[in-house]
Computed example of a mutant assay.
Amino acid sequence: MQAIGLCRFSYPALGGFQVGHETTEERIAYLYDEARLEERFRLLETVALPCLEAQTDPDFGIVFVIGDQFPQQHEKRLESLLADLPQAVIHREPPRRHREVMKEVLNDARIHPNEPCLQFRYDDDDAVSVDFIARLRRAVENSAGLLKGERSVAFDWPKGYVAEFDASGIRAAEVFRPLNVAALAMYVKGGSPLTIMNFAHEKLPRFMPTVSLPDAAMFVRSHNGSNDSRQGVAQQVKVAPLDAEGAALFRDRFAIDEDHVRQVFSA
């Protein structure tokens, strides 16, 4: 069964952001600001990509959506970072309505539209466990009876971490967050045009059966200066430096190496 991921990498969509802008030009200026992009690239390199490269089940694809005005030097940097992830492709798109673009991208990525598929969203500053794809497939297999007759079923792993990354290393706190973007996926039956982008992630249970699997830490949600989640609850989590055990867990479970974090953020 095909598994498809979708990552919006500083794509200047119309809508889709908690942080508002009056015009598309303002949004592009905000997203392509050099300091902001530097932070996003550092998080992509140290947090988001290593766990994808280390998946125990490498049978998945992921589309990185960028704007058609994305600066050329940064596009080359993105291509360089994705060179070690053959499952990744870059899709360029002019500014359009957020959900419409993402739904089109996901449906175009389906190799066999008449067969069922698995879909997941992926933020460029988050991580999932190195066995996320394997656990997703196993959960779907174990839910065969539930899937019969359903257009879609969501699968959610609510245990994970909130973390901050900088030149000093990693500070983190364990959290329980149902329907977080990371470690959330959706089964779509064959022939259905539905995508995970048809729905707000926190509202999925309103529209389909949702399986919650609180059996292991499955995500790392990054809090930083430029992500969309820096509002509200982002300021309520108290993080602390990782001890040796925590650093080992981040390395083994999410392929996030604290020495690598320090090196990249010190550059």
Score class of each variant (00 low, 15 high):
residue 207 F to T: 02
residue 243 D to S: 06
residue 108 D to V: 08
residue 40 R to L: 02
residue 36 R to A: 08
residue 134 A to Y: 05
residue 74 H to W: 15
residue 6 L to C: 08
residue 201 H to G: 09
residue 59 D to K: 04
residue 111 I to V: 13
residue 68 D to Y: 08
residue 201 H to F: 12
residue 75 E to H: 09
residue 25 E to H: 08
residue 132 F to L: 07
residue 175 V to R: 11
residue 52 L to N: 00
residue 193 P to N: 13
residue 116 P to N: 11
residue 232 G to K: 15
residue 127 A to Y: 00
residue 219 F to I: 06
residue 145 G to C: 08
residue 93 E to Q: 15
residue 40 R to V: 00
residue 240 A to W: 14
residue 74 H to G: 09
residue 216 A to I: 06
residue 24 T to F: 07
residue 7 C to L: 15
residue 135 R to M: 13
residue 41 F to W: 00
residue 46 T to W: 00
residue 247 A to S: 15
residue 234 A to M: 07
residue 199 F to I: 06
residue 44 L to E: 00
residue 244 A to S: 11
residue 38 E to A: 05
residue 26 E to R: 07
residue 96 R to T: 11
residue 41 F to L: 02
residue 73 Q to I: 08
residue 203 K to L: 15
residue 209 P to Y: 06
residue 116 P to H: 06
residue 85 L to D: 01
residue 25 E to S: 11
residue 17 F to W: 14
residue 211 V to Y: 04
residue 47 V to L: 00
residue 155 F to T: 03
residue 5 G to F: 03
residue 228 D to G: 10
residue 91 H to W: 11
residue 15 G to P: 08
residue 217 A to H: 14
residue 131 D to P: 10
residue 165 F to M: 03
residue 42 R to W: 01
residue 23 T to V: 13
residue 101 V to P: 05
residue 103 K to Y: 12
residue 92 R to S: 09
residue 110 R to S: 09
residue 164 E to T: 11
residue 219 F to E: 03
residue 97 R to C: 12
residue 158 P to K: 07
residue 44 L to G: 00
residue 195 T to H: 05
residue 175 V to N: 06
residue 86 P to E: 06
residue 76 K to M: 15
residue 45 E to T: 02
residue 82 L to N: 02
residue 141 E to C: 14
residue 86 P to F: 02
residue 257 D to F: 00
residue 101 V to K: 04
residue 112 H to C: 14
residue 123 D to G: 05
residue 65 V to I: 10
residue 150 E to R: 14
residue 167 A to N: 11
residue 130 V to T: 13
residue 76 K to I: 10
residue 167 A to P: 06
residue 139 A to M: 08
residue 13 A to P: 10
residue 161 Y to N: 06
residue 259 D to P: 00
residue 125 D to H: 09
residue 70 F to A: 05
residue 49 L to T: 03
residue 75 E to V: 03
residue 71 P to H: 05
residue 236 Q to G: 08
residue 198 N to V: 04
residue 228 D to I: 09
residue 190 G to K: 04
residue 203 K to F: 12
residue 29 A to G: 07
residue 80 S to V: 12
residue 6 L to H: 07
residue 192 S to C: 14
residue 224 N to G: 12
residue 198 N to L: 04
residue 14 L to G: 08
residue 129 S to L: 05
residue 74 H to E: 14
residue 240 A to H: 14
residue 209 P to G: 07
residue 183 A to T: 03
residue 224 N to F: 10
residue 26 E to W: 01
residue 131 D to K: 08
residue 203 K to T: 14
